[in-house]
Design a protein around this nucleic acid. Sequence first.
DNA 1: TACGTCTGGTTGTGCTCACAACCAGACCGC
DNA 2: GCGGTCTGGTTGTGAGCACAACCAGACGTA
Lengths: 150, 150
Amino acid sequence: MVEPALWLNYEEQKTWRRLLAVECRLRDRLDQDLRSAHGMTLNDYGVLVHLSEAVGGYLRMSELADRLLLSRSGLTRRIDGLVRDGLVIRRACPADGRGSFAELTKAGMDLLQEAAPTHVAGVRRYLIDALGGLGGLNEGLSRVETALEP
Amino acid sequence: MVEPALWLNYEEQKTWRRLLAVECRLRDRLDQDLRSAHGMTLNDYGVLVHLSEAVGGYLRMSELADRLLLSRSGLTRRIDGLVRDGLVIRRACPADGRGSFAELTKAGMDLLQEAAPTHVAGVRRYLIDALGGLGGLNEGLSRVETALEP
DNA sequence: TACGTCTGGTTGTGCTCACAACCAGACCGC
DNA sequence: GCGGTCTGGTTGTGAGCACAACCAGACGTA
């Protein structure tokens, strides 16, 4: 045995693993729901949501990558896929010759409109309704965010 | 505007995204801590922990894959890496000629003993202490698990 | 024993991602 | 205006994963 403060007790271990497992299962479920109903990935859905919320329906690549917590090369490839599917187009940034925008197409907006209820229903059902509201979660997230500060 | 029940309000959206982001950051941080201090992945750490908790320090591949929420092919490759590093060995299952065990080596146990305090400290600092205990989290996880039941 | 089926594990393949290298354009000092 | 440096985005490469195909061994039935 080692001093207890350096280890997790049985309950703590169990909770920690459940957290990891639930995260994973929740994400998988939401992804599956979107795939089966709209042939679309949860990740791709995230791109469309962020673009739809931006004024004009477009964002700089780097800005979008930051919001999605994705590397820039990762975003380049993900946008490649969405462009191939006609959901997004690239547009040169007039103010900065290096930059480019990712912009939602009509087809992208339509698909988002169609898929959003599926996603939202999942979030409600699996998370919000299950927890009976998000007050407690919000509180906890703030504390964890603070602890994660560098 | 669409009927509110089908959409998330601003607060709900914000919380939902924070949840996704915090998950991601927490995992990344714990991974980074292990990498920098012990040259080891959070995923690999998970394998060692599960093996160390099994009686005899070994588990059937399929059993281990289930516990890690990993596909069997994924586990095969992950074990390949740990075998290459000398932390785990494969052993034939005497009772079933098809099966094989993954078994912790002395080096694997030593590395786990060395790395565990790092990981545990992270979980305590970023999660348990931040939340002031796990009671609330446990409660919430149970509810989400129930909602995720098929 | 012999044959069909099932199961555990590995291998082939393709996807997604990060890191590093790279290129073009912007920015700065002079 | 002109070099040096910085920055936004893409491309090269390798890691980690899932799905499907596969193989050897186990299991059931006759």
